[in-house]
């Protein structure tokens, strides 16, 4: 009996100790690399800042962007300032009159230097009726945002809005960008080919890339379908749009993306839509949750919420 009690107590003590082990380990041994951090095995959620405490990122590997990267950031609520809500950053990235630190679609009337629209650019912007946040926003079913009917977001909108998780893979001839949202991908050719002379428009365009140094990969993209919007605010582009993406790997765990918009039909000069926008490497086992735009789900949403939200009062 006595022996039994002792063994029971010992077992209980052992179980308690084991139960505390992960905590003790967490306190005494911070993760050495991002791959030591636990994430959900399936449908992983991007890591937030506390998870990285104690990690000193290793130096960036040479000419290598591969991995799973999160663009939703560590800001309040997880949304990186700017990109998720505003789409493109302001020009420059200043939003006086925007009282929400997490972003908020820019009020085109209040920014000190508006985007350098051409007359056509301004007219096209005004013809676009966004349904996101901001002063120009209308109710979900009263806008003309292509995304509201599950038309493709296309490039560069995929990086200027709904930029969440992106997996990057490299082969001898390509860098492949796999987007979480809408499960689209882009092929960046690195085999030395030139961009096409008279490209048939495509939603993701035509891209070639090259390393300008061991940690900076620059991509040029043309041939974009002008039915897409640049961002959630409805900023326009034409088929003459040329986009430069500059992926700069700061260290093993961090990358910065700078996106420059050059479209002489819509803007009088090039402007930066993202300036050193941060991307954070996720653990190797990160499983990307799928996001599709499903027309039947959208129809149900419009039927249950979108349409009755704008129906006449009292009916």
């Amino acid at each position: 009996m006595r022996t039994h009690s002792i063994s029971t107590i010992s077992a209980a003590a052992l179980i308690s100790a084991l139960a505390f082990l992960p905590t003790l380990r967490a306190q005494t041994a911070p993760p050495r690399s991002v791959d030591d951090i636990n994430v959900d095995t399936w449908n992983s959620r991007p890591l937030r800042k506390p998870a990285y405490a104690g990690i000193k990122p290793a130096p960036a590997p040479r000419r290598d962007l591969s991995g799973i990267w999160d663009a939703t950031g560590d800001a309040a609520g997880g949304a990186a300032p700017g990109v998720q809500n505003t789409g493109a950053h302001e020009y420059p990235a200043v939003l006086p009159g925007n009282n929400n630190p997490a972003g908020g679609e820019p009020d085109e009337r209040k920014i000190p230097r508006q985007l350098p629209y051409t007359p056509l650019g301004e007219a096209t912007l005004k013809a676009h009726k966004p349904t996101g946040m901001g002063v120009r926003s209308v109710a979900a079913v009263l806008g003309n945002d292509p995304l509201d009917i599950c038309d493709p977001a296309g490039f560069p909108r995929i990086e200027l809005y709904e930029f969440a998780v992106i997996e990057i893979a490299q082969t001898a001839d390509q860098v492949i960008l796999l987007n979480q949202f809408f499960r689209t991908w882009r092929t960046i050719w690195t085999d030395g080919r030139e961009l096409p002379k008279n490209p048939e428009p495509r939603f993701e365009g035509y891209s070639v890339g090259k390393w300008v140094d061991d940690y900076t990969f620059v991509v040029e993209t043309i041939g974009l379908d002008e039915r897409t919007w640049l961002d959630n605010a409805g900023r326009p582009h034409s088929s003459e749009l040329r986009v430069e993406e500059r992926f700069h790997r700061v260290d093993h765990d961090n990358m910065e993306l700078t996106v420059t918009i050059d479209d002489p039909k819509m803007y009088t000069q090039p402007w930066q839509a993202l300036n050193k926008f941060p991307l954070r490497l996720q653990p190797r086992g990160f499983d990307i949750r799928e996001v599709h735009c499903v027309p039947s789900d959208t129809a149900q949403y419009n039927n249950d919420i979108g349409d009755p939200s704008v129906a006449p009062e009292g009916k």
């Binding site: 939703t72 609520g77 997880g78 949304a79 998720q84 809500n85 679609e105 966004p130 349904t131 996101g132 946040m133 901001g134 926003s137 209308v138 109710a139 979900a140 009263l142 995304l147 709904e162 969440a164 959630n232």
Partner: peptide
């Protein structure tokens, strides 16, 4: 997050 639809 990802506020596709605003408050209109």
């Amino acid at each position: 997050l990802f506020a596709h639809h605003g408050n209109a």
